[in-house]
Amino acid sequence: MGIFIIILISLCFLCLIRIALGPTLADRMVAIDILGVLVVGVCALLAVKLEREFLIDISLAWVFLSFIGTIALAKYLEKKRFD
């Protein structure tokens, strides 16, 4: 169980690399979106590992917040030209 959490957190670092490298703004937004879904998995695994039930509530709330953030960023991207 612990090894899975370590792998997932290192995958979050891959997303951070894409945020740092990304040539355009859209690349960074894709990486942020993916990071949000990865964190949901980390929270669910931690809820089983630590036997704390509120962590699964955090992951449910995180799904919604990540979705609203992605929609807001996409709207922002659509209005203007970048680069």
């Binding site: 937004m29 979106d33 929609i71 991207l77 659509e78 030209r81």
Partner: peptide, 11 residues
């Protein structure tokens, strides 16, 4: 939404 936004922003 992200794909559409990226296309509309000229990428």
């Amino acid at each position: 939404a992200l794909g559409r936004g990226a296309h509309k922003s000229g990428i």
